[in-house]
Simulated assay, not measured.
Amino acid sequence: MKNFSLKSFIAAILICGSILNLSAETTLQTVDFETANSGYTVLYGQTTSPDDWWERAAPAQIAPMDPFSGYQGSYFFYAEDTDNGRTADDPCYVTLNQINVAGYTNIKIKLLVAGKNNIGSSLELEEYLRIQYSVDGGAFTTFMQYMTPALNAIYYSEDTDLNGSGNGTALSPAFAEFTYNIPVTGSTLQIRFMGNVDQGNEEYAFDYVRILGTEQVLPPGTPENITIVYSSSLPEFTWSAAANATSYKIYSAPDPYAVFPAGWTLEASGITATSWTDTNASASAKKFYVVVAVN
């Protein structure tokens, strides 16, 4: 710390560090199926009859087979007897548009899911709904799936260990929200739903898919090379730009040993330049200053 005497004005600089602003979670993508093919594409889509379906649906389109409640908006994506007219066990797909996730961490997916056996008989073990991800255009990897936990089950369940048998939360006719982390380490992300339902009385649906992430913020460096010049009877400060800084704050106090920041006065904030003039300075007062980089 150095004392500077500028004519009758006495000032001092206490070189300080930085403040890192934590970022809030951001929604990077939303697909709600309210508009056909908006934000997604369908492969092997079908709407042959109310009980042969792999496509978005309004309740009236699939009535009276529709057992669902709690969906968002007027449409959801619906699956029933998806192998109609095709080889049994052939999957169908819904692929969301690719998004940019560079600079984001803690990527996750939130969605609404519902499902049941419409007549209460047993589900087939090979039926599933899989959620997959692709990073930077690579192969799709399954990170969650819903399957029957046993041959006599009437509801699909989360298969949290991906071993082909439901062991988690069971789906019901009421849509429920599920959240899953996605282990993304690249720049782009694409989500795909892969499904297979063999019978006309077995069905599930999903809706309101959201991809979220937290923007990665780099900590700012420390302002350096701070100088004072005397300009128009007022002290003008300059400093070298700090790495990753988006703005600067200036604090002052009559006592350099005051607790920071409680014992200091915030003179200015949101400074985007690397200079600042204290227009409140008094020629008879001694002030100590702190320059803080912010990101």
Rank of each mutant, 00 (worst) to 15 (best):
Y156Q: 06
N167E: 01
K110H: 09
Y146P: 01
G115W: 04
G166R: 09
L125K: 13
E126M: 07
N167T: 03
P149H: 03
K116P: 01
G137H: 07
N106C: 00
G168I: 12
G120M: 10
L125V: 08
N100D: 15
L129T: 15
T160W: 00
T141I: 14
N117D: 15
Q145K: 13
N118A: 11
A170K: 14
K110V: 12
A150R: 11
S122Q: 10
P149D: 10
G103R: 06
S121Y: 11
F140D: 01
T148D: 12
Y133I: 07
N100R: 02
G115F: 05
L125D: 10
I154Y: 07
D161A: 08
G166H: 05
S122N: 13
T105A: 12
E124I: 08
L111W: 14
M144H: 14
Y155A: 13
L125G: 10
A170M: 09
E126T: 14
N118W: 12
G120V: 09
I131F: 15
I131R: 10
M147I: 12
N163V: 08
A114C: 06
A102F: 03
A114H: 05
V101W: 01
N118M: 13
L162G: 00
S157I: 02
D159C: 05
I131T: 09
G138I: 07
I109Y: 02
F143W: 04
L129A: 15
Y156A: 05
